[in-house]
Amino acid sequence: MSYSLQKKLVIVSFLFVPVALLLLFLLYPSLRLLQFSLTNWNGISKSFNYVGLDNYVSAFQNPDIWKALSNNFLYFGIHALFIPLEVMVAVLLNNKLRTSNFFRSIVFLPYILNGVAVAYLFSYMYNPINGPINALLETLGLESWIQNWLSDKGIVNYSLIVVSLWRFSGLHVILFLAGLQSIPNDLYEAATIDGAGSWKKFIHITMPGISRVMEIVLFLNVRGALQVFDIPFLMTQGGPGLASTTFTVYTIQTAFKYNNYGLASSLAIILMLMIIIFSYFQGKLFKGKGE
């Protein structure tokens, strides 16, 4: 056996397992998903018919799906608004405060907690009977601020977004912090010698320094906002009515509650495409500015 053949054999055999796993657990299910999205399969029956692009057409024509999607964008928008605040917190924590290590752990803690536990925790907080939030407002004499946090259609989404912010902002702060710490100190020292103030340093050194992290955070935000599922599903089941339904909650219910796997598969494909498209444009936009 020649040396090059041996080499090839080694490469092939080493690559075989990961490639097989990738095909089996990623490519094959994705192709099946694509196949189901072109059918009217109900998820139980032994047979199904191909219906062409009907599922995609009905998905775009369905006002409930657009309503669900608009809820996703609310998550996206409010999370995006909080990014500057997260950067500020990261900058604060990056300073050599005496307790900064303690605060770093505290900030990250909500992200470590189990999503289901977080949902139940906040369900309790928002509870109209003996709920701590309402009790606190009462103690402070702010009875008029008491709301039906999870049952008022105009408020429920904001109540849920607060939970999402509480849970994920910490992760963003830690990512920004990692970005900040990777900026070499001599850049700041040189800037100080050149007479730059802290705002100039922030704009010209810190911001470009964390641009990679910013890109990651923005991608996580798009992906997270479009896929948000556990918080509304566990806390309100998308209710009252369809008020807090998100795209993924709608997809799950289409598949498992209404036995329409064909439509649900097409929604899953649409979601995948949306994430790819949004991330692409966001990346383009950011690259244009950052580099």
Binding site: V12, L15, F16, L23, S47, N49
Partner: peptide, 26 residues
């Protein structure tokens, strides 16, 4: 890479063979 992919595809297809035989049937 090509060889690996082909080999792996055969394995996967063999594993999923029972569902690939006839169209339109789960």
């Amino acid at each position: 890479l090509l060889l690996t992919t082909i080999l792996a595809s055969f394995t996967v297809l063999a594993a999923c063979g029972s569902t690939n035989n006839d169209q339109g049937t789960v």
